[in-house]
Design a protein around this nucleic acid. Structure first.
Lengths: 352, 352
DNA sequence: CCATATATGCTCAGTTTGAGCACATTTGGT
DNA sequence: ACCAAATGTGCTCAAACTGAGCATATATGG
């Protein structure tokens, strides 16, 4: 088939629809509201944390949520500026680094917006900050370890207990459960999806697939949000507290996306320094990376890595009171952005 | 600062706002409409192409656009299913692989939706397909080389002429132009941004930064969309046809995002096979990769790469009439998804 | 002054990568 | 029939990179 082909007919069908899209406000479209949600991440005492705000409980009893608010095209010039002003208002925090994550619009996954209000489409953002960096106002909200919501992601003490004891058994049960007869024979075998996501059966655990794992658990009805959204699920099995704390709306989904994104991104962009103070020791840097990725780094090789990549430069100072020999202090070398196409802490993604 | 701190006050401010977000439809929010846009990419005769549909010209005279339509929460269960049905309707194409790219919401970058209609927020999608794979209906629309819209991205014959002759001079002029006095002293020097995006002055050309380059050109007023959105720009310099064909709305921005994403993604996910027929020779595979990334691959090393990565397996057949020795045919090895965390054609991102 | 803990330099083998040589097997002429 | 041209395929080899560990330096806290 050649590159150029039937061009004319593009004008015929779909024409009215497009016209109405660009001009006439159609009433039968159904009202849409856009929610701006911020997963604000920091590392505090070698613990990865997210900023959580508390509200009245949702249908599943969850009170934890992310700072958020509706996008208002009249007052917000861009989506991101809208997000910033909501975070400022709700948490008293001036965001520094922020990037868009994903836009979720599934029907039925945004509790409380059910049938009464407009359909809510959620745009998730990732923001990176240092704890205690609330410039103008005082921070409201709580910094909470992200592992509270995703205990199966916590590999700091080796493979998390909860996987073997609870998560995998329940998933296996779900995978083996007979699917309704009408289902396609083998779209992708459920057990293969479990294997890919959770690295069972000889496959590898990919620390970046946080969202895939959460979505699988959701689909299997093993997180409380799934029972909130599809109450019929809670009949076969009672809600279990073992699958991490729930969050309001689709905020846990957004937080999962955020965790996966940071974990991926520090490997090819120097965003890790958004989480660091201006001056730091190489070991502090390593600890921060490990807080994000999991602790699997060889110290000497880590310092060789960041030094030879030109990511840091010594300040000339040293830090005493480290409990040992004083450590040289370093700072981020901004020039690296001009030198390399994808500067980041290129540590290996996987463990066995 | 400790991890746990003032939780209570989260309840006070921003409370009304959030309540209204989840329940009462506020009228003062301003109407928002969501546009679903598809950058449908294929490779045809070793040429990377996108599916373009033609419409009545926009303010800048552009008639080319991507298939798109508004999200209708009443009929579309998910954003992606909405996109699929629009593509089906407009192009007669059943989408296979599709992923969300980004959501753009800036005021003033979506022509024709100006003051009359609702504010349009565009969600861009990337879809990968094989040319000629229109299952049910006949395709409408045209496959066009994406370099028609981004000539400066075309490195197939070495560094593109247009960079030295037109783009960089104009960018340099823009970088040197005195900024208005109120501007921050050195947010990031304009010239540094040019350097990072376009690899001038010894820096490297990063083939993945397609969007950054387009946005820089937009900001510098060097693409027609910029003049369409900010007519005052066209006064100092007349519109020039040298900066690639324009597109309607923000579709060129979305296409730029799509190109950057494919270029990045084939390196760590086996999406390249979405563009290939079931059986292919290794050289055909290489040609397809080069169509996407630019032709800089060593043949023997490429085959070593894909074979040792377990991405392909021989079918046992050979293809004659290659113009030389017959080539073994291969197929995608789906099992690789279960074996490796990030399977992809891990070719180096950069050239000098 | 010693045990302990962290900081830092260096080695070394195994692996991966970039580049090229050599040979195989076709097609299309002559 | 035979050769030139073009592509396919196997293999080598040095340079660069990686994973792992040994060894030494310099603090702190009894």
């Amino acid at each position: 088939m050649t590159i150029d082909m039937q061009t004319q007919r593009a004008m015929t069908r779909g024409d009215e629809a497009k016209r109405s899209h660009s001009h006439a406000p159609r009433t039968d479209l159904g009202r849409v509201e856009i929610g701006l949600n911020a997963a604000i991440v920091a590392v505090s005492n070698n613990e990865p944390v997210a900023l959580i705000v508390r509200e009245e409980p949702d249908a599943a009893g969850a009170t934890d949520g992310l700072p958020f608010g509706p996008f208002n095209p009249k007052t917000h010039r861009t989506l991101e500026s809208g997000l910033r002003s909501w975070v400022q208002e709700q948490a008293g925090l001036d965001l520094g680094y922020a990037e868009q994550l994903y836009t979720f619009g599934d029907r039925g996954r945004h509790a409380e917006a059910g049938d009464t209000g407009p359909h809510v489409v959620s745009i998730g953002y990732l923001a990176l900050t240092r704890v205690g960096e609330s410039h103008p106002g005082v921070e409201r909200g709580t910094w909470r370890s992200w592992y509270q919501f995703f205990p199966w992601e916590d590999w700091r003490k080796g493979r998390p207990q909860i996987l073997e004891s609870v998560v995998l058994p329940r998933l296996k049960e779900w995978a083996d459960r007979p699917q309704r007869p009408g289902a396609p024979a083998r779209p992708i075998q459920r057990s293969d999806r479990v294997r890919m996501c959770f690295g069972t059966d000889g496959a590898m655990w990919d620390e970046e697939r946080v969202l895939d794992r959460y979505e699988l658990l959701y689909e299997a009805g093993l997180v409380t949000e799934a029972m909130r959204d599809r109450p019929e699920l809670s009949i076969p099995s009672p809600p279990s507290e073992t699958f991490g704390s729930g969050m309001r709306f689709d905020h846990r989904r957004i937080l999962a996306t955020a965790i996966g994104r940071v974990r991926a991104k520090i490997k090819y962009r120097p965003v890790i320094f958004e989480l660091m103070p201006d001056d730091f020791t190489l070991f502090e840097l390593q600890r921060t990376v490990e807080a994000i990725l999991g602790p699997h780094l060889h110290k000497q090789n880590f310092r060789r890595l960041v030094e030879s990549a030109g990511l840091v430069e010594p300040t000339g100072e040293v830090r005493t009171r480290t409990g040992g020999r004083p450590a040289k202090l370093y700072r981020f070398r901004r020039e690296v952005l001009l030198e390399r196409p994808a500067p980041g802490v290129r540590v290996k993604a996987n463990r066995v």
